[in-house]
Structures are given as structure tokens and as C-alpha cells.
């Protein structure tokens, strides 16, 4: 959406592009996610996430005219909940559902709105999974991302910049899960042996936020 020649926010075009890029990046990293999950979990994360996002793609074509970014987020939520199968289904499903609620009926989302959406998504994952920072879960990517997004939004950075900050922080957070001992999820059964491996949920979270940032950058450049 262009207003006075300046990109002021992220709209439905961005949201749909984000989902397509998400599906692509998850497919590209499917084997990597499976490998990470096989090391400390049940080995199905890459396959489950790929199935979930591939199931979203055809539904994008059925979006009604006048749909909002919130509608897209809700579509992703319900599809992931029904198709993913592992813990990632309810966790990501809840994240997208809470994000959709935070987006409301807004046609365009500015930096402050993006920070609010990311906060709602993270809070949804926390309430569903009961994990805390340092438990070696996707929260360890999400919480730094939310903190970075809040700081960027408070500094007046635009929506694309907020997502870029969030993606950078999520990637660093995912890497930082490597030495941690898992306290939640299937990896917690491994105890100390879970240290030395990156958490697959934190990794997929970072991938999805990077896809959002890339879509936002493309949208801002358009």
C-alpha cells in the first residue's frame, strides 16, 4: 500500500507472499529439520511442517476478495492445526491464531502492529506449550524476536524493518539453543544428551520469520 509515495504497511499481498515463501523455505529445509529433530526428537518436524504448509497453498486461491492479512493468518492456523500432526501443529496453529486475532480486520499493518502480532503469537505458544526461555524450544527463537521487534517498533522502524530485526534475533536465538539442555518436549527425555544440538522448532521459527522479513522487503521494494 503506497501513501504519499512511502510504504506504510504490510497488506494482503505481503501476507500471501509470506505464506508462499514459508512453504518454499520449509520445503527447502525439510531434510535439515528432519535431521535436527531426529537427533533430539522423533524426526518428524520437517515432514510435518512441509505437509502443513503445502496444505495451505491451494487454500490461498480460495481467499475471498477483500481478505485481510488476519484472514490469511487464520487460514494458516486452522490448516496447520489439522494437518501437521506433531506438537508443531497446535503450537504453530495457536501462534498464527493469536496473531490473526491481534491483526484483527486491519487492511495494512505498520511496524507497531507487527510487533503486537509477534507478541501475541509468542504469548500463544507460551500458553499452549508452557515453555519458558532457556527450555530449548521455539520460545528461544520467539522471545528474542519479540524483544527485537518491540525495540525496533519503539524506535519508529517500519514494518519491513521490524520483521528484519525479529528474523535476525530469531536466528541468533535458534543458534543459541545448541548448548541448552531440553526441559520441554520430546527432547527433554534425552536430558543432558540433548545439549549440542539445535532445537528444530526454534530453527523452523527462525526460517518462518526470515520468510516474513523477505516478503516484507520485497513488498517495500515493489
Amino acid at each position: 500500500m503506497i501513501e504519499g509515495g512511502i510504504s506504510v504497511g504490510l497488506d494482503i499481498t505481503w501476507a500471501v507472499d509470506w505464506v508462499r515463501r514459508s512453504a518454499q523455505v520449509i520445503a527447502d529445509h525439510r531434510v535439515e529439520l528432519i535431521t535436527l529433530d531426529r537427533e533430539i526428537g522423533d524426526g518428524d518436524h520437517g515432514e510435518n511442517m512441509d505437509r502443513g504448509f503445502q496444505a495451505v497453498l491451494p487454500k490461498l486461491d480460495d481467499l475471498a476478495a477483500g481478505s485481510t492479512p488476519g484472514d490469511v493468518l487464520k487460514l494458516v492456523a486452522t490448516t496447520l492445526i489439522s494437518t501437521v500432526g506433531g506438537a508443531a501443529g497446535p503450537l504453530y496453529g495457536t501462534a498464527y491464531l493469536k496473531a490473526a486475532a491481534a491483526a484483527g480486520g486491519a487492511v495494512s499493518l505498520d511496524g507497531t502492529a507487527i510487533a503486537a502480532i509477534l507478541t501475541a503469537a509468542r504469548d500463544g505458544v507460551v500458553s499452549r506449550g508452557k515453555a519458558e526461555s532457556g527450555d530449548k524450544t521455539m520460545i528461544d527463537a520467539w522471545t528474542p524476536a519479540v524483544d527485537a521487534a518491540d525495540a525496533a517498533a519503539a524506535a519508529g522502524v517500519d514494518a519491513a524493518g521490524v520483521f528484519a530485526a525479529a528474523a535476525d534475533a530469531a536466528e541468533a536465538g535458534a543458534v543459541a539453543t545448541e548448548p541448552l539442555v531440553a526441559r520441554k518436549g520430546r527432547a527433554s527425555y534425552l536430558g543432558e544428551r540433548s545439549a549440542g544440538h539445535r532445537d528444530p522448532g526454534a530453527e523452523s521459527s527462525a526460517l518462518l520469520l526470515r520468510a516474513a522479513a523477505d516478503a516484507a522487503a520485497a513488498s517495500a521494494g515493489a
Binding site: 492445526i81 506438537a87 508443531a88 501443529g89 497446535p90 503450537l91 496453529g93 495457536t94 520430546r186
Partner: peptide
């Protein structure tokens, strides 16, 4: 049984 079964059940309740 294991964790994600509980998460799925809780989501269904929602």
C-alpha cells in the same frame, strides 16, 4: 500420552 497429544487435545477444547 506424550506431550503433543495434550497440546492437540487442549487446542481442540479451544
Amino acid at each position: 500420552d506424550l506431550g503433543s497429544a495434550i497440546l492437540t487435545a487442549e487446542t481442540a477444547l479451544d
